[in-house]
Write a protein that binds this DNA or RNA. Structure first.
Lengths: 145, 145
DNA sequence: ATCATACCCGAGGAATCTACTCGGGATTGC
DNA sequence: GCAATCCCGAGTAGATTCCTCGGGTATGAT
């Protein structure tokens, strides 16, 4: 059970935009270089984020991307669900017809509980939280050196 | 983010064996029919469960499979990790070298927290729990009818 | 003994998915 | 107008998933 690189790349990109909030639009190229992501692939991923309104783009020269909302209002959960597809361990959680047992499936309750917990965790973390964690981590490293 | 059918089939099979604990060995064919799983595929899956000692096999005529331990001592977490591979959202959680950032990766802490939570949930549920849930569910349905 | 019943096992393959690349068009600042 | 960007659909190599096939091996019943 693993996240796709698409999802990880996307989250790294959003984190990058959060770090550069206020520095004007960031180009795909710049983000890709900083985050070590293939440029053209990142273009695709950010395109999806833009379609959902999580980032805004500025076209033309000196253009690029910016977060559409403050980092504190963007949760990892949103990003995961957008980039990875909805979190559901088995189709029957969402679509009762997907399973013949549906009503009396013994594992349904398990997947349902698990799905809820995962969503709880990722929804509770925002880009702002990640930013703060990261700053704290960097301070610790520098403090030791 | 979804479980593989391999994993779901395996858990259904284990649940079937839990239901039939004490009824002698169950054949692949019988389990496959009850759980609506392709017979030859199930053979493969149960083979993996056997190698890890979660089920024991009886060879020859009148043979089949049985749980190696009581249902209360087999957690869904064990099954998921065996059938789905270890739960880890990104390679860097397990193998620090998998990521160049490793030390200062901002998302590492997120994946790590998520991984822990998922394991907590699935480790807390045993086949016995599923069995009891299922019986309760059936009673309710019958009570209404 | 022999035969039917089952487990056991490796190989293979179709379908799907993932992680990209490619080429070219549209928009805008300078 | 020209260079920098975003924008977008199509294509593709490789991996993965979900199976199937064929044949071997152990064992109980007769």
């Amino acid at each position: 059970m693993k996240l796709s690189t698409r999802c990880r790349y996307g989250i790294h990109a959003m984190f990058d935009l959060a770090q550069n909030a206020g520095n004007g639009p960031q180009t795909i190229r710049a983000i890709a270089e900083r985050q070590l992501v293939p440029e053209q692939y990142l273009e695709q991923i950010i395109g999806a984020l833009r379609k959902e309104g999580l980032v805004v783009s500025v076209r033309g020269a000196q253009g690029g991307y910016m977060l559409s909302r403050p980092p504190s209002e963007i949760s990892i959960g949103e990003l995961v669900r957008l980039l990875e597809g909805p979190v559901l361990m088995a189709d029957c959680i969402q679509d009762a017809d997907a399973c013949i047992r549906s009503g009396q499936c013994p594992s349904r309750v398990v997947w349902s509980r698990l799905t809820d917990r995962i969503n709880e965790v990722v929804d509770a973390i925002t880009l702002q939280d990640m930013l703060e964690d990261h700053i704290r981590l960097q301070d610790e490293v520098e403090g030791k050196a």
